[in-house]
């Protein structure tokens, strides 16, 4: 029975089990394999675009330099002019999410970001690190973040509760947004393509009529590619915004 959710299943490609070492087992799953593939693509793209460090750019290096400049601009405008120490992290995160989203748009490929545990693990880790960063930078003053400036004293207990909930919700919302978008998009494509293949293989007349919904389907693929870019951008933009909150506290 065909299920559109089959594509998100993590399967073990090969595994190593060692019963002597306390049932130690390590497995290379399709998710692990695609993670390495994403790494190779990003690294390879940078190697191709390095242009032998020439001052005059090539076609590839123009693309990469403008890409780098736009991420650097985002970090500068969001976090601050002198906070470029966060740039490699945001740049790597953006590229990792973008390339894993784009790779998953190729048919029969696995989407790394469709794994809830990957997205939530990333967002919870970022949330914890940003909180630790804020606590080490501001100490006890960090808790003033939960009291909006200029609010009446009577409202403080209620507002602190609301701010606290919204602060903790960040940890889940960041990952859930990415995961839900990718899973929803890929499931929709799988369902629509299963309808289309049935229609295409019915008869000659239906085949030509089906070209109309197929055009719509192609547009949805374009939308999915746009979603890949938008979600990677939104994720890194929100990470920048959280780092800014940790750096400056409002």
């Amino acid at each position: 029975m065909f299920s559109p959710l089959d594509q998100f299943e993590t399967i073990s490609l090969f595994s190593l089990a060692a019963p002597i070492l306390g049932n130690f087992n390590i497995a290379l799953t399709n998710l692990g394999f695609y993670c390495f593939l994403v790494f190779v693509i990003i690294f390879g793209f940078h190697v191709i675009s390095n242009n032998n460090l020439a001052l005059v750019p090539s076609h590839y290096s123009i693309a990469l330099e403008s890409f780098f400049a736009s991420i650097a601009n985002m970090v500068r405008s969001q976090i601050g002019e002198n906070k470029e120490i966060y740039l490699p992290f945001v740049y790597s995160l953006f590229l990792f999410i973008l390339v894993s989203n784009l790779v998953s748009n190729v048919p029969y490929n696995f989407a790394v970001t469709s794994s809830a545990i990957v997205c939530l693990g990333l967002s919870v880790t970022i949330f914890l690190s940003v909180t630790i960063l804020a606590l080490t930078k501001h100490g006890i003053k960090f808790f003033s973040f939960f009291v909006p400036s200029g609010c009446p004293l009577a409202l403080v207990p209620l507002l602190v509760l609301i701010e606290l909930i919204s602060y903790f919700a960040r940890s889940v919302s960041l990952g859930l947004r990415l995961f839900a978008n990718i899973v929803a998009g890929h499931t929709l494509l799988a369902i629509l393509s299963s309808f289309l293949i049935k229609l295409f293989s019915t008869s000659i007349l239906v085949f030509f009529v089906t070209l109309i919904p197929f055009a719509l389907f192609t547009a949805i693929i374009g939308l999915e590619i746009a979603v890949s870019f938008i979600q990677a951008f939104v994720f890194s933009l929100l990470v920048c915004s959280y780092i800014k909150d940790a750096e400056y506290l409002h």
């Binding site: 993590t10 390590i26 799953t29 692990g32 993670c35 490699p88 590229l95 790394v112 990333l122």
Partner: peptide, 19 residues
């Protein structure tokens, strides 16, 4: 644990190599 380890391994090496 397997999934998150692979993701973090790749992401951390990516951050290291890029930076």
């Amino acid at each position: 644990v397997n999934q998150i380890s692979f993701t973090f391994l790749v992401l951390l090496s990516l951050i290291f190599v890029l930076s």
